[in-house]
Each structure stands twice: as structure tokens, then as C-alpha cells.
Design a protein around this nucleic acid. Structure first.
Lengths: 139, 139
DNA sequence: TCTTGACTTGGAGTGTACTCCAAGTTGTAT
DNA sequence: ATACAACTTGGAGTACACTCCAAGTCAAGA
């Protein structure tokens, strides 16, 4: 059994792949969210495919509202090994629930916007309505 | 025709009703997102039911990702009157689309989390799998 | 009247997450 | 050999959205 050599990326390629900026990747490493990256002899960072996938996973968590601190905690658990699996699962389930609540709120706001758009359109077609119906916009 | 007298609220009641803090309401007024509030003789702010509804609308836009600057722009249009109705409608439609994209991203992340939870559970039941399958978490 | 709590202002301070910079080193193409 | 781009570091600066504070005024009950 031989290890399949993984293609190795520069920080620039990592940034392209993940959508993070190079500065952000270095920043994440600095605050301990990403582990100290492997280096070439020159000191330049290198990333494996596996690491890039991990970063993308991070971006998904972040984009869905997880804070950097929570992600750091999750990573700490990951480093503790198998014993932390149950807690990691419960964190993910909890996060999934938060996402669901967020989706519900978004859907509700969409309905509210639709209602408002309808009102606007009515008011546009028949300006008289505008006098009776005052749009609530904090005034 | 007589005006139905609207019940008038203090800033404290406004904060309770909207979920914003009193400081935040004053801050929104300071930056021009809310108009200069009506005052009692004492100088204390008062809010009508209509104004409270407007504030709740604001909180919905904010909670779905609209920035304070965008909301200020929307309010400016509102103050310009009927002529701005088409632009206001298009802003709302645009925002609705942004919300839809956000929902899509959230759903996708939920699926990703489900996949990961399954993997974790497998690894927990059968620790051998954990050796073959490395969780990508940026390491 | 006295006290207690609510409200006022302008401005300073905070938390999160970057983002940029200077000064120096390394890698690559000509 | 000489550019020139890519990379390195520590630390400073920025953007957004609040959040808190001091010092003072106002309102309502005992």
C-alpha cells in the first residue's frame, strides 16, 4: 500500500479554491482556527487537498452563522480524537437546528416582502390607495 | 372624519415591542435610519403604533441581511414619495432574491451537515472506519 | 418635598472579523 | 544576472453595528 501523493497548493491557490482571501487564511492560522500550515523549505505554506476541503467546510459553517470561536472549539474537539465524536455530533445537530430557524425566519420575511410588494403595486396602479394605506416604514 | 388617536409609546415600550435596545433605537435615529422622533414637552421620545410597525419591518430587513446603509437608502426613497415606488419595489424584489439565495445556501449546508453526522455516527459505531475516512477539518 | 426610576445628550469604547502595510525573502522567467 | 511576482512576518488600521457612560433633566408615587 502506497500513499497517493496529494497535490499540494500554495496559499494563493488555497484562497482561490476556498474563496477566502490569503490574508484571511493567514489570519485564521494566527488565531488558531487553522493549524500551523505545512511549509516548504522556503517557509511558504502548502496545503493538501484534504486541508482545502476542511477549509471549505469552515466557510460553510461560517456562512451559516457559526462564529470563529465556535469553529475553534469544534476544531479543538477534532484534535482530541474519537472521544469527542458525540460532542461534535451534537454541535452539528445544534447548528443544523439554528440553520432551520434561520430558514424559517427568511421564509417569513419573504412572505412579508411579497405582501409589501403587492401593496406597493396596488398603490402604483391606483394612487388613491396610497392615501389610505400608509406604508409602515418607521415614520 | 376624526383621527383615531394612536396610542403612544415611550422608547422603553418601543424597545420591548421591536426587540431592539433603547440605545439601538437612539443610534438608528442618530445615523438617520429613523427620523427624528416626536417628543413630549419634556423632550422624551414618543412612538405611534404605525412607527413601531415600521421599526419591526426594519428588524426583519436587518435580520435577513440588509445593511443599515441600504435601509437608509430605502427610507430616503420612502420620503421622496410615490415617485420612488418602482425603485422601492425593485429593491424589495432584489432583496427577496438575496434571501432566496441565502435559503439555498442554508439548505445545502444542512445537507452537508447531515452527511457529516452520518459519517461521524458510522465512525462511532465502527471505529475502524475512522482510520480510513479522515474528516476534513482543515488539518 | 423627596426619592427613585426613566429619559436626555454627545461622545467614547467594544466585539467581530477581517484587511492592509512595510520590510524583507524566495521563486521563476528571460 | 536581473527583474518581477509570490510569499513571509508582526502589527496597525478598518468597517459595521452597536453598547456604554457621565452628567444632567423629567415624572410619578409615598
Amino acid at each position: 500500500m502506497i500513499d497517493i501523493p496529494e497535490t499540494v497548493s500554495t496559499i494563493k491557490q488555497a484562497a482561490e479554491f476556498t474563496g477566502l482571501s490569503e490574508d484571511t487564511i493567514r489570519y485564521y492560522e494566527k488565531i488558531g482556527l487553522l493549524p500551523y500550515a505545512d511549509r516548504k523549505a522556503s517557509g511558504h505554506r502548502t496545503y493538501s487537498k484534504h486541508q482545502l476541503e476542511g477549509m471549505v467546510f469552515l466557510t460553510r459553517l461560517k456562512a451559516t452563522g457559526m462564529t470563529l470561536e465556535e469553529m475553534k472549539h469544534f476544531r479543538k474537539l477534532y484534535e482530541m480524537g474519537e472521544a469527542s465524536l458525540p460532542e461534535r455530533v451534537s454541535i452539528l445537530i445544534e447548528h443544523k437546528n439554528r440553520i432551520q430557524n434561520e430558514i424559517d425566519r427568511l421564509l417569513e420575511t419573504q412572505r412579508m416582502i411579497d405582501f409589501k410588494i403587492d401593496k406597493f403595486k396596488e398603490a402604483f396602479v391606483n394612487p388613491d390607495l396610497n392615501k389610505k394605506w400608509k406604508s409602515p416604514f418607521a415614520d
